[in-house]
Structure formats: C-alpha cells, structure tokens
Design a protein around this nucleic acid. Sequence first.
DNA 1: TATGGTATAGTAATCATTACTGTTATTTTT
DNA 2: AAAAATAACAGTAATGATTACTATACCATA
Lengths: 132, 132
Amino acid sequence: MRKFSQQRAAIIEELSSVTSHPTASEIYNMVRRRIPNISLGTVYRNLSMLADDGAILRITTGEGTERFDADTSDHYHFCCSSCGRVSDLALPFCGELNRSVEEMTGAHVQRHSLIFYGECADCVALGRSGTA
Amino acid sequence: MRKFSQQRAAIIEELSSVTSHPTASEIYNMVRRRIPNISLGTVYRNLSMLADDGAILRITTGEGTERFDADTSDHYHFCCSSCGRVSDLALPFCGELNRSVEEMTGAHVQRHSLIFYGECADCVALGRSGTA
DNA sequence: TATGGTATAGTAATCATTACTGTTATTTTT
DNA sequence: AAAAATAACAGTAATGATTACTATACCATA
C-alpha cells in the first residue's frame, strides 16, 4: 500500500496553490521553502506517481520540460511560444472524441491532449515575438 | 537564402517514404544507408529547420522523444502507450478551434496539437498492456 | 579565382529525467 | 508500544535526447 509522506503532501499542496503549471524544478524550489533538504529525485518520483495515479496532470508541451497541473478536471491548454507560459482554456471538453477514435481504429483510447500554441495576449501587447 | 544540400534532400526523401513518424535517430539510421558519414547533428539541425519552415511536422507525444512526419496536412495522431507507435487519424480537422481560442483569450494562435493516447488495436488483440 | 555565406562532420557540452544505494519514515503486526 | 516489514527518502551517479562548438567543405557570385 502507498505510504503517506510529508514530501508528497507538500508537493501536492504547493502544486495546488498555483495555477501556473510549474515544471518539476519549479515545484522543487517551491517545496524547498518548506522542506529544505528535499531531493529533486523525490519531487520527480512523486510527480510521476501522482500523474500515473491520476491525482495530478502531466502536461507535455514540447517546449523542453514537462509541466504539472493539480487541476485534474478535463480541460485544454494554451502554450505561449514567446514567454513559455501555459494557461488553462475555458473551451468545452469533447469527451466523445475518445469514443470516435475507438470506433474508427479499434484502439482502446484512454485520454487525449489538446494544446494550442501561439503568442499570448500579454506578449502580443508587448510586441514580443519568437523569443522565449 | 537556404541552400539545398544532399543531406537535407535525403532526410526529406527518407521521411517521406514512411508513414511511421520516426524519431530523429531512426531517420539518422535511414539516411545513413545513403550517406554513411552523415552526422546525427546534421539530422537534428535539418529536422528542426524543416519543422520551423513548416516543411515537415514535429510531433511531441511526451513518450520521451520527438517524432517527425512528412505529411504536413492538418491531421491528428494516436499514440500507443504499449508499443509506442504513432499513427495518423482520419478525424476531421477543426481549424475553427484556433479562432475560438483567439476570441476567448486575445492570444494569437498559430496551431494546435491533438493527440489521443491508449492501446492500439494490435496491442489490444495481443493482450499487451502498459509496457512499451 | 577570391569572397562571403551557409552547411557539414565530428565531438563536446547541456539539461531534464531516471536509476542506484544506503538510510529513514511510516505502517502493520505482534 | 516495540519489532518487523516495507515504502519512501536524500544524495549522487548515470542516461539519453538534444544542442552547441569548431574547423572544414561546398556553392554562388562578383
């Protein structure tokens, strides 16, 4: 049975306290304020376990590093190519898509990931472009 | 102006000859049959340039390594968690989604990526599960 | 044929992530 | 509540994909 460690609790709490979809090392720095000698490996291991359990979401944007989200409700993301930020979208979730793909392919579909890429409103306003 | 090198031509040709969405090192091995001393760095650099130019597609599945696709038409992908294969889906493409997100957020949306995850029909039939 | 620009091969470096090892914490059993 | 069993930890080393670097080679044009 899975044991309840302070480290795992702190990771969940810190991740739940933000909406910024932090990376593993950002979470590491957040948790270190509470548990100064926590190991980066511990953060990675717990994030993986939690994501595998479905307790948190792992977001793969392709911009180098994985990001994590404590909000496990079905939703989609936007990733800004200029500042690198990832934000939630209030787009309706299409659960039926999974069923469509199953019928179309015979595969067993577990989930899908929909990510939009571009320049966020802030970056557009500031005239930034291209450079992360 | 961008120069047309044999290496780049070979990379495009090899990638166009398959529908398997190979990784950079798979493409490296394919091209090496024709240009034995081509460098892995050359493959990576050309794949990046081609993807940036929109001449090929870069597919980020989150299963460790990036994959590439010579088919640049708008389409979606399925990624099998058991065998790791990535396949094309004949799902209708929703270009209007980009516009919706723009109106909703004020961002400038360039593209979106929709990937389905699960166990492909072959793996379901063979009773494999979980292990890549 | 000299010049400037782009690409290349080969190698070294980077960086996110994972694996390993001996120790500590948590749970379960007595 | 002590002991036994097991999961998790800290710290560090290893892995592996990707990028950067450097000196050389190719190609076009003046």
